[in-house]
Computed example of a mutant assay.
Amino acid sequence: MIRAMIVDDDALVRLGLADLLDGDEAIETVAQASDGLRAVELATAHRIDVALVDVRMPRMDGIAATARLRALPHPPRVITLTTFDLDEYVYDSLTAGADGFLLKDTAPSEILRAVHLVASGSAMLHPAAARRLIDRYHQAGHSRAAAARKKLENLTPREREVLALLSRGETNAEIAGHLGMRESTVKAHVSRILTALEADNRVQAALRARDAGFTG
């Protein structure tokens, strides 16, 4: 069972998301918060697997809340779910540690898929957000390319194979199938890759690989 938390200052949005999530037999909404500060309090008191977090909220916004949530001893995965796909929102939320970025007009089935993917250790970005993020990284990419290539030098050939598939958005199970290894072994490789690339999550690891011009 995936334990979810909804963080949004709009009560109707919280109600709608709770109905959606609770309609999936593998997801349970265990907490709701109307601002980022309350979200951190609830995540400290309860085990949360995935938090759906709005950006614009009183007391503590979603970006700051994401950073605080990811810094907890048992951090939940975070999906930013907002009305706005502004460049700074996409970049700042992922930099803060979010594993996903979706717009509120995303189809309900895709929101549910995102919760499952993020809970399993994968990532999911709204296509428009992904394009904006790639464009921003291309514009400022030259200054990071050398540093990213240096980090990739620390990876073994096997870890490079895992990174190539991870960068294409494949799940741990899919990577295991492609490379003929156990899923637990893939998880160990992914953990090592994140450490070597100084990345907080799979999205950041994929961006490091893109910075370095790595294609596998």
Rank of each mutant, 00 (worst) to 15 (best):
1 M>C: 09
6 I>R: 08
7 V>L: 09
8 D>P: 06
8 D>R: 03
10 D>R: 11
11 A>K: 12
12 L>G: 09
14 R>I: 11
21 L>C: 05
22 D>F: 02
23 G>F: 07
23 G>N: 06
24 D>P: 00
26 A>Y: 00
26 A>P: 00
28 E>Q: 13
28 E>S: 15
28 E>Y: 07
29 T>L: 03
32 Q>S: 10
36 G>F: 00
38 R>F: 03
39 A>H: 02
40 V>K: 01
40 V>W: 01
48 I>T: 04
49 D>T: 12
49 D>W: 04
50 V>E: 02
52 L>F: 10
53 V>S: 08
53 V>Q: 01
56 R>Y: 07
56 R>K: 12
57 M>Q: 03
57 M>L: 06
58 P>C: 06
62 G>M: 01
63 I>Y: 05
68 R>I: 05
72 L>D: 05
75 P>W: 07
77 R>G: 06
84 F>N: 14
95 T>V: 10
96 A>R: 02
97 G>L: 04
98 A>W: 04
98 A>L: 09
99 D>F: 01
101 F>L: 06
101 F>W: 01
104 K>S: 11
106 T>K: 07
109 S>C: 00
110 E>P: 01
110 E>N: 07
111 I>R: 02
114 A>V: 10
114 A>Y: 03
122 S>R: 06
124 M>D: 05
126 H>L: 00
128 A>Q: 12
129 A>F: 03
131 R>Q: 14
131 R>P: 08
134 I>D: 09
134 I>V: 12
135 D>W: 10
136 R>I: 13
136 R>G: 07
138 H>Y: 11
139 Q>Y: 10
140 A>F: 14
145 A>W: 09
146 A>S: 15
151 K>I: 01
153 E>W: 05
158 R>N: 10
159 E>I: 09
163 L>D: 03
167 S>N: 12
167 S>I: 13
168 R>Y: 04
170 E>T: 09
176 A>C: 11
179 L>S: 08
181 M>F: 08
185 T>Y: 09
188 A>M: 12
190 V>N: 02
193 I>M: 03
194 L>N: 05
198 E>V: 08
200 D>G: 14
200 D>Q: 14
201 N>V: 00
202 R>F: 05
202 R>Y: 05
205 A>Y: 03
212 A>H: 05
212 A>C: 10
213 G>H: 04
214 F>S: 07
